[in-house]
């Protein structure tokens, strides 16, 4: 299952970054596919990006909401929130585990041999604060003298944007280097911190700062595809604890907001078939069998 997940991550990485003419055009993809959202965190100013970023677009729409309203255009970000909500209702944070390119990069960095550390549990609430403050409140309400807001998360925090868009663009368009200043240094420092942290801890950005992960986490109870715990089979042996890349103790909190449904606990750890995959309430797979009977003893 783990190799299947790796392949899905690679394929989606290429699908959402499939514009390979950028070394010749020296610009980003500008075709119609960009009306479709990338399910994971993938900057749409990345030269290879073929889709739009949910977090970036939402901020842009909120930042320009007042100007749009004055022009008679009712843009509140409903198309973007609707897209994210449909994906969240279907898969929740499974998207983080299976298709997000920045999550995949963090996983690869964590394979570098080094001492490994956990991420303090209270830090996981940071991503909700970032979603609320930097993605919604500040872009919507902090206006300049012309009534325009700013994309606060992209501008001051997003390490994915720095890695996938900022750095490639200054190589593709050398003229941009004259504009580099403290803003760019700030973003490089944040990028280096998270990449370095990813070497010694598993998925630190996903766990502490990703606003898209925070949004998908809101669907942990009511998503269509999810991992479930069969308490009758669970022996509370704790084997599912060390394999989880998000630090979830699945036997203690099976609906944890941080579960990315990578299925390592189901396929690599649990020997008692206590963890299974369900779709809409119907069990479809356990660790040892792909398809589980859809009936149970009463």
């Amino acid at each position: 299952m783990e190799s299947v997940r790796k392949w899905v991550q690679v394929v989606f990485g290429f699908l959402t970054n499939g514009y390979w003419a950028f070394p010749f055009t020296r610009n980003i993809y500008q075709g119609p596919l960009k009306v479709i959202c990338a399910p994971g965190l993938n900057c749409y100013s990345c030269p290879a990006a073929t889709t739009y970023c949910l977090i970036g677009s939402l901020q842009q729409l909120l930042a320009n909401m007042r100007l749009a309203l004055e022009g008679g255009q009712y843009y509140f970000g409903l198309y973007v929130v609707g897209s994210a909500g449909i994906l969240g209702g279907l898969f929740g944070r499974m998207i983080c585990g299976w298709v997000c390119p920045f999550g995949f990069i963090q996983e690869l960095l964590n394979k570098i041999p080094s001492p490994k550390f956990g991420v303090p549990r209270p830090l996981r609430y940071g991503k909700f604060i970032i979603l609320l403050v930097f993605v919604i409140i500040l872009p919507a309400f902090a206006m300049d003298e012309f009534g325009a807001g700013s994309t606060w998360f992209c501008k001051y925090i997003c390490p994915a944007g720095t890695l996938e868009a900022g750095l490639p663009m200054i190589f593709l368009q050398p003229g941009l280097r004259a504009n580099l200043g403290y803003l760019f240094i700030n973003k490089i420092v944040i990028l280096v911190l998270f990449l370095g942290w990813s070497v010694v801890a598993s998925r630190p950005f996903c766990r502490t700062a990703c606003p898209l992960g925070a949004f998908y986490a809101l669907f942990s109870r009511h998503k269509l595809v999810k991992l479930r715990l069969n308490r009758d089979n669970c022996t509370s042996c704790g084997a599912c604890h060390p394999v989880c890349p998000m630090g979830v103790k699945f036997d203690e909190s099976p609906e944890d907001q941080d579960c990315i449904s990578c299925m390592k606990c189901m396929t690599k750890a649990c020997r008692f078939e206590a963890i299974y995959l369900e779709i809409g309430g119907m069990p479809v797979a356990t660790g040892s069998s792909l398809v589980r009977p859809v009936s149970v003893e009463e």
Partner: peptide
């Protein structure tokens, strides 16, 4: 909104990527 999203997505927002 999709038209507006597309307009935004095909432009490089320099300040958004720290430049």
């Amino acid at each position: 909104e999709p038209v507006r999203v597309l307009e935004q997505a095909v432009r490089v927002c320099l300040s958004c990527i720290g430049i």
